Amino acid sequence: MSMVKRAAFAAAILALCSSVSWADTIKVGVIAEFSGPFAMYGRQYREAIETYVTKHGKQAGEHTIEFIYKDVGGSNPDVAKTLAQELLIREQVDYLAGFTFTPNALAVAPLIDQSQTPTVIFNAATSSINKGSQYFLRTSYTLPQVTAPLADWAFDQGIKTVVTAVSDYGPGIDAEKAFKAAFEKKGGKVVDAIRMPVATTDFTPFIQRVRSQNPNAVFAFLPGGPPTFGFTKTYNENGLAKSGIRFLGTAETEESNLQALGDAAIGLTTAFHYSAAHDSDVAREFNKAVKEKFPNAITNWASVGAYDGTHLIYEMVKAAGSDGPKALEAVKALKWESPRGPVEMDPPTRTLKQNVYIREVERDAASGLLVNREKGVIATVGDLGWSQ
């Protein structure tokens, strides 16, 4: 975009935003995957948003909130940018939300800066995203936030050698670097670092490479959905656990895939900011409310990221309506009780501070289902990758 066109675009957006600042209806544009292999994200975002709206109503302060959904299909930054332009100019939205993949979020950063549009990230987990625009806020997590505590815990459990196996894109590289730095600082050794193409569907060669190194454990990170299921299933089928190579991960045992992994998943260890088995009244109420509205729904970290993101949007609208800078100021240190536990916005990073749970897969005696049982907690962890 030329400098002249960029200036014209910015002026058009600001003019539109100022012209509707008095309106009773506040529009929120949600850019996510509603088709293709990652459509579970869009579905779970929408289920969480609609569950929140059912509980709290469509009113936030003096305003009515309307959500407009756009399908980006996957990691498509050009499409994400086009959709954001359509939402900002044609639909005249006051807020944006969604953003599963890092490239999609980064693609809209210049647009939200120009339009002063608060944008709530429900998932994308690369630390540096929020440096791209002061209007980004994140209600998910970052990879260093969950991987560095896992590395510390693993070393304290007697694990001294690890192979890292991550998808070769921003969040995967973030996870690899954060784990390695924390693990080696404790005195552990990363004996091999494997980066797998994001489009990989056959993980057998990578699992065999892990086995050939005979480490105490393998640390894995892959995008949620088919990749995490495929890697974890291949780990189980190749008998790494029986040969003494422990599994360390983050979202690889996430709830949408967990039952399909079967008994071979029992004992797998992950560190994450959410478990559907979290023991609190707020968590139980959340799970019940989602199930009542969507009987076939399965709540996971994408669900809670969108639910808390919707809460953040409501609080901004209550405080500031469509005034973007005022909205940011109103929630920069907001605290609340989430279905994941206590959370608070961190003003410098605009990412949640939250608990990180050491989880182990086990079969719940009451329901007979596999669950990620919380076995330990590292309290109030911020974005550990922000200063890197």
Rank of each mutant, 00 (worst) to 15 (best):
E50C: 00
E176K: 10
D24K: 00
D281C: 13
I358F: 12
G170A: 13
R90T: 07
L328F: 03
T270C: 14
A199T: 10
Y169N: 07
I159L: 08
A7D: 05
G224M: 07
D168Y: 08
A84G: 08
T100Y: 15
G57V: 05
K186T: 07
W386V: 08
S2H: 05
Y141Q: 01
D281N: 14
M196P: 03
A365E: 05
P325Y: 11
A105Q: 11
V30A: 02
P226S: 09
P227D: 11
D156C: 15
N257V: 15
G187T: 01
V190L: 06
I121W: 02
Q59F: 09
D24L: 00
A265L: 12
A23Q: 08
K189G: 05
L150W: 05
Q354T: 02
L143C: 11
I68K: 00
A124T: 08
A12G: 15
C17G: 15
I245H: 11
K160F: 12
R138T: 08
D323P: 08
A283E: 11
A97M: 15
G324Y: 09
E91A: 13
P227N: 13
F221M: 10
S115D: 14
S275M: 01
D152V: 10
A124C: 05
T200R: 00
M196E: 12
A366D: 11
Y314E: 02
P110I: 14
K180Y: 09
W336A: 06
A125G: 11
K55Y: 01
A277K: 14
A175V: 13
Q354G: 02
L328K: 03
F294I: 00
Q388I: 11
T201P: 00
P118T: 00
A178S: 09
E252D: 15
N300Q: 05
G61Q: 04
A105N: 12
F229C: 08
R195M: 10
G225P: 10
M345D: 14
P339E: 03
S243D: 13
F34M: 03
A271L: 04
